[in-house]
Computed example of a mutant assay.
Amino acid sequence: MLEFLKSYISGISLTHLPMFAIAWCFLFAAAIASYGYQYYLVRKDLSFFGFLKHCFPLHTWRDKSSYIDIMMYFVSKYTKAIVLLGHIALVLLVSGGVNAILGVVFEGYVAQTAGVITIIVFSALSCVVWDFSNFLSHYLQHKVPFLWEIHKVHHSATQLTPFTSKRLHPLADKLDLTIGGVLVGILFGFGQHIYDFSVADMVIMLGNMNMIVTIAVMDPLRHSQFPISFGPLEAIFISPRMHHLHHSVKLEHWDKNMGFALAIWDRMFGTYCRAKTGEAYVYGIGRGADVDLEYQSVYGAYVHPVVKSIKVLTGVEAPQPMPELPNDAYDGAVPLSASMTAREVVQRLRRRRLHFG
């Protein structure tokens, strides 16, 4: 059975696909589509430099926030490897423990042979569990005050770029993988006992399905200037536009849309929020530009959050409440390209009696 499983999985493995390449392919595809759509609407002259400006807005990439995104992206390439070692060890420990307990409880059980359908179902189930673990970690980082101090690094981004996805403190990464390691490890323990899957086999199954889901929900565009909406499907899946709303500083958007791929967790926990037509967002922590600036440096991104977290945890500093700025404090303060469709951009420009070119 294992030989069949390994040969089947190796034939469809997607885990070798580089996420960096996928992310930038998505970005350029979205840029081409939206640039072409704007041309269709207003018949603006097409140009290579116009496309580059559309794809890489200067106001975004000149912002100090974007420099920190890029710095943290490259640092994460080293810190992630260390964190992953602990994650792998935890998965092995938990799955082995669950398998041993099941072996005692169901003594004499003979593992079943897994067919193609079983492999697909188990892959999907493992992806659902992984998605819930990501939601749970994210939810805790928003709701637990000392964890929020760590997660603030991510929300201090005042511009969204493809590099913002790696704007995470290593401790936040550690929490994500610890919760994921426990929940996925439990499922893997059942997989070992019922079907005699090895952990390596199940990791590949999870990796394959997770890659498919990542592409399906356009995850690389969650942190970009392209507010892709899934329409009615947003009742089930988290679209890039829904994640843009999650980064909004408005009170009505605070602690909303914390899911990665599935929106069902947000519905269950009361954190679901659909974006309104024509809605635009300002990004940041929500306590003013001065607070956002505290995190726009190496010290602010790595040391400051730990210091703040310890102070909150030990009671030296009271946790900050939700932002006190009213919802209309940021109205009209966002660039036209921030979180609008091409049609909405054109409508707003026409209302202001402005013209392209």
Rank of each mutant, 00 (worst) to 15 (best):
residue 180 G to W: 12
residue 305 P to S: 01
residue 53 K to M: 04
residue 322 M to F: 09
residue 336 L to E: 10
residue 252 E to M: 08
residue 146 F to W: 15
residue 223 H to P: 00
residue 316 V to L: 11
residue 239 S to T: 05
residue 77 K to M: 13
residue 71 M to A: 13
residue 278 G to R: 06
residue 113 T to C: 04
residue 242 M to Q: 15
residue 285 I to D: 08
residue 348 R to A: 08
residue 164 T to V: 13
residue 118 T to K: 06
residue 204 I to G: 00
residue 133 S to L: 09
residue 48 F to K: 04
residue 284 G to V: 10
residue 179 I to F: 14
residue 57 P to Q: 14
residue 237 F to N: 10
residue 194 I to T: 07
residue 223 H to G: 01
residue 354 L to C: 04
residue 34 S to N: 08
residue 278 G to Q: 11
residue 44 K to P: 00
residue 156 S to K: 09
residue 321 P to Y: 00
residue 329 A to R: 12
residue 303 V to F: 13
residue 143 K to Q: 15
residue 261 A to L: 04
residue 52 L to E: 02
residue 291 V to M: 07
residue 202 M to F: 02
residue 208 N to A: 03
residue 138 H to S: 03
residue 107 E to Y: 11
residue 57 P to A: 14
residue 285 I to S: 02
residue 41 L to S: 00
residue 190 F to R: 04
residue 49 F to P: 00
residue 190 F to W: 14
residue 14 L to F: 12
residue 120 I to M: 14
residue 193 H to N: 10
residue 39 Y to P: 00
residue 225 Q to R: 12
residue 240 P to C: 15
residue 138 H to G: 02
residue 261 A to S: 14
residue 259 G to F: 02
residue 96 G to H: 13
residue 289 A to H: 09
residue 218 M to W: 04
residue 33 A to C: 06
residue 245 L to Q: 11
residue 232 P to F: 12
residue 159 Q to F: 10
residue 96 G to T: 06
residue 111 A to L: 04
residue 87 H to S: 15
residue 271 T to R: 10
residue 86 G to N: 11
residue 293 L to F: 05
residue 193 H to S: 10
residue 95 S to I: 12
residue 323 P to Q: 00
residue 268 M to N: 06
residue 342 A to Q: 05
residue 252 E to R: 10
residue 245 L to G: 09
residue 244 H to M: 14
residue 351 R to I: 11
residue 69 D to Q: 02
residue 32 I to T: 01
residue 8 Y to Q: 10
residue 224 S to N: 03
residue 67 Y to K: 13
residue 32 I to Q: 04
residue 97 G to S: 12
residue 165 S to D: 14
residue 277 T to P: 10
residue 170 P to T: 01
residue 355 H to R: 06
residue 115 G to T: 03
residue 299 Y to G: 01
residue 289 A to V: 09
residue 330 Y to T: 13
residue 53 K to H: 07
residue 196 D to T: 05
residue 103 G to H: 08
residue 145 P to F: 02
residue 16 H to P: 00
